[in-house]
Design a protein around this nucleic acid. Structure first.
Lengths: 208, 208
DNA sequence: GTCTATACTCTGATAGAC
DNA sequence: GTCTATCAGAGTATAGAC
């Protein structure tokens, strides 16, 4: 039974997980080309040939890592409920996205690095699933604006702004911490700041 | 006369520029470790040994590229005038930063990649110049808030939000374009969106 | 399933002719 | 100043023993 076909033994399952975790560590820090199998094998505590027993190539490890990541990454947006109270739904989405960035910074950086490099290994996913989901949720946001339940603003750029602001704290972590200095909890402060920002942006009792 | 000491001949000056431009292209797309001298030399239209005649090592090329980049990158913030009208000054800063992202996307991505990877070659600069400048400008923002000329919000996170939102359009360009689809001008739309966002965030006639 | 040994390619850098 | 030739080391991947 080849290791890439199911079912897998406990030890195979376990080793695949160990390898993927190590690969996440290395790929997120150096990008695809900058990462080496030597490094991944060392972090995983395996020999390089043994690593290549579980995955046929470097490319395959990277692909396995990305597969499913986009899904996880979009879950918070998927969960935005058209039947909920608009502002509360949006703030809850921001909260979930920020929690994701805080709890899975390596995943966030892997994703960011991939996009930064032109998304050579994610193109179709981005132009397919991602685009479709944004379109669907943008329609919901537009309806809420039409109904006067939140202030009017470009719905797609609203979603972009949520992505940009939440991921900034994971992806630019070292810069954020360097500027804030010690004794700060960036994600806690971000939570309060972003709640204020989106509340004011979307409040219906705008002066202008 | 060594090529790394001044003065340089016209041809030396010219070749250094060609190399640095090629290096920007390659480093911004693959990161430091993922970039190769072969690639840089090819883009520059030079042989690899010739490239290494102008710069002693790969590291030196990268360093030359980063040196000065941070300065350029911080210029828009530096130009925020404490004697100006607060909201106009902040919106003008957002505008300048967005223009920079639009006109120098490769520089933006080079910078982003470096931070993403833990800023191994920019640590001191970030903890020094960058931090000092942010502190200085945060004091100005705080004073404006104390005087009731803009709404109160964490000034450092306000600066973070400007960085995050403007750079998002350069760094995640492929994602932005994939989601928007053809027939859009991301930076033009971002200009309007961000003006609205920061105007509402900082308006003094808040309801709450 | 895991290891040692190794094939073969790429990469950063140098030597030396012109 | 620029080139060809080349080196040592690192890189991906495979063969084959155990």
């Amino acid at each position: 039974m080849s290791p890439t076909s199911r079912p897998r033994s406990r030890i195979q399952q376990r080793n695949r997980e160990v390898i993927l975790d190590a690969a996440l560590e290395v790929f997120s820090q150096h990008g695809f080309r900058g990462a080496t199998l030597d490094q991944i094998a060392e972090v995983a505590g395996l020999s390089k040939p043994n690593l290549l027993y579980y995955f046929p190539s470097k490319e395959a490890v990277h692909k396995a890592l990305l597969t499913g990541l986009l899904d996880t990454w979009l879950d918070p947006l998927r969960a935005m409920d058209p039947r909920g109270e608009p502002l509360a739904e949006i703030l809850a989405y921001v909260r979930r996205k920020l929690d994701l960035a805080r709890d899975f910074p390596r995943e966030s950086r892997l994703f960011a690095g991939e996009i930064l490099q032109g998304a050579p290994r994610m193109r179709e996913a981005i132009e397919g699933d991602l685009r479709d989901l944004v379109e669907e949720k943008a329609r919901i946001l537009t309806r809420w604006m039409d109904e006067g339940r939140i202030a009017r603003v470009d719905p797609v750029h609203l979603i972009f702004s949520i992505w940009a602001l939440t991921q900034h704290y994971a992806d630019f972590d070292v810069q954020v911490r360097a500027v804030l200095g010690p004794g700060h909890d960036p994600f806690a402060e971000a939570g309060g700041f972003l709640k204020t920002l989106f509340s004011r942006l979307l409040a219906t009792d705008q002066a202008g």
